[in-house]
Design a protein around this nucleic acid. Structure first.
Lengths: 346, 346
DNA sequence: TTGTACGCGTTATCAA
DNA sequence: TTGATAACGCGTACAA
């Protein structure tokens, strides 16, 4: 690569390839109206001098920034973030897009932060942590901004989304422990109406319990607002009086908290109490007993999110897509046949 | 906020505030030559109509993109990534900068990926996973590109960096287990010369062992190339013949692997074998026994990284800064007084 | 203290 | 198939 004193521009390419800047642009962007011969020559020169179009200069006339915005939350328990982001960045780069990270300034709403980034220029958004009444949806839909959500959309939203099949997944978990002989299956979830995805997972629990004729006791259900294992621990203490012999949680972190609570109470996880998580974060295989869980293929999800978004960006009129990915039940040591004995009381 | 049909531009602000676009720019960017009265009026109008300068239009004439590039690696075991990125994004946004994520395309080197984003336009880089002979350093220094590294720099590099005090931290861990009575302390590290930070941590181990007069047996030291607990597990199997009663690892994930190996061998962690990790990832408090570890304040590190970089971006002539942050030894259940009994043999 | 005019690197339009 | 030219929205000299 010839070393240039400063960044080579489209004019440099043009001068060397003996064509006008306009032709260089057409050739490199794959637009029609360029002879194959010229296109090849231009591409070769561009490669040789290491030409890369300036983002800014490209965005200005075209009105397209080639940026995808992602609002990053402060969630220290999200162990899969690195994987998700990496997958998104990879998928984006394949289509010549880049991921722009932003977050809310202290006291600023996610909505306002999104508006700010939007005004500065992004072509679309990937949304996480979506609430049922999330104002971002209204904003984007009213302004025709493309978005795709990680997680099912609330009723009424007409956008694209990618999610693991939460209802089916949780139902699968309930079936699994039921097959092991458990009758009283607890559920540790998030507050109703907090996350769309959380509500769906709860639905899977209810459906499975009903279908299987398991104990349908409201005292077996508990909801927590956060993500930390500690919340799962407190949660289990709240339902232990209802004598669950198995617990299904909406996340691995909460499930690990349940395991800690069992330890507090002298209950043996796997023996006295079966526990199932959701996500399959690395810690799920690190804890002892290792945690049975529903594996969410985060990498695939990240890739699909971006692919779906880019497809809509390419043809704005197209139908929104919803992609559901079946989570895989990974059976480990936290679920073994139910103990015939009633668990120890506190 | 008045709703604009499309993005409000600097002209819109000017028209409403009854000043020229030039004055709007000067007022909003805090440049001299604007009366306080005018500046306040302009700022008010800008706020009212929700004006945000277009990134592209701003970058073009100024030659400054207000982007910080970060090469995101695919490391599923990096549980702190979300926290680090969030801290960096926050710190950047305070100074009106944004974080741009990029990664290497399949088969592409980190260097080439960096050159690509650089040509497209970024003002500086935050570097992770830095190797002693990392070619990025030469590139950036020869082209006067500002960068700051998460981790100590290799000898000869003259850039800024932020790191936890790895040598002091590991030494602190060795002192801790020595105080508990351990004489044969193993070390699970990365291959020499692989990561600058890894070599420094090893130095802390050697120094402490020497200073304390502990067993200085090469068979107590083992290095692994990866990050997965499984690597730590294999590592411990390799050094168990040297009869360590304590092990210090360069990461929590490796330490957790050591705990698994102890389980394989029927050794009780905390009783037969003391284990210390590094990082304090969430899983460190999830495993049982909970893991004693050196807490790396990732959030602080992320903030400082960006602050240090921005300071150099502001005054390019300034001296590079090196910031060392003391890790905190968090004592948990994996380190208890040494057992008087020789550990079980395989 | 403020306004005007130019240019940044690219893409789109229109003419050749 | 190609070249010339006019934006795109902003920052900044320079002029007023």
């Amino acid at each position: 690569m010839a070393t240039f004193p400063s960044r080579p521009t489209i004019r440099d390419v043009g001068r060397i390839a003996k064509v006008s800047p306009g032709t260089v642009s057409r050739a490199l962007r794959g637009r029609p109206g360029v002879s194959d011969e010229t296109r090849i020559r231009v591409e070769k020169v561009a490669r040789q001098i290491g030409y890369q179009a300036s983002r800014a200069a490209r965005a200005l006339p075209a009105g397209k920034t080639h940026f995808i915005g992602y609002h990053i939350a402060s969630d220290p328990f999200n162990a899969s973030m690195a994987t998700l982001l990496h997958a998104m960045v990879q998928a984006a780069s394949r289509a010549d897009f880049e991921m722009l990270l932003f977050s809310s300034k202290p006291g600023q709403s996610t909505l306002d932060a999104s508006v700010e980034v939007l005004q500065r220029g992004v072509d679309g958004f990937v949304l996480s942590y979506l609430r049922p009444d999330d104002p971002r949806i209204g904003l984007f839909e009213s302004r025709d901004i493309e978005y795709v959500a990680f997680g099912h959309l609330p009723r009424g939203a007409r956008g694209s989304w990618v999610d693991s099949a939460g209802a089916a997944g949780i139902a699968r978990a309930v079936h699994h422990v039921a097959e092991l002989g458990h009758q009283r299956v607890g559920f540790v979830g998030w507050p109703e109406g907090q996350w769309v995805t959380g509500d769906i997972r709860y639905r899977g629990y209810v459906e499975a319990v009903t279908e299987l004729g398991l104990a349908d006791d409201p005292a077996l259900v508990v909801r927590v607002g956060g993500y930390a294992p500690e919340e799962g621990r407190r949660a289990f203490h709240q339902i232990v009086a209802a004598r669950p012999t198995a617990v299904v949680a909406v996340s691995d972190n909460l499930a690990i908290g349940v395991m800690h609570a069992a330890e507090d109470l002298g209950l043996g996880v796997g023996t006295d109490l079966a526990v199932v998580g959701y996500d399959d974060i690395p810690a799920a295989s690190d804890v002892r007993p290792s945690l049975t869980t529903l594996r969410q293929p985060v990498q695939t999800i990240g890739t699909r999110l971006v692919e779906v978004l880019l497809r809509r960006l390419d043809n704005p009129g197209s139908e929104p897509e919803g992609v559901e990915i079946q989570p895989e039940l990974v059976i480990r040591s936290s679920t073994v046949p139910a103990s015939p004995v009633v668990p120890t009381q506190i």
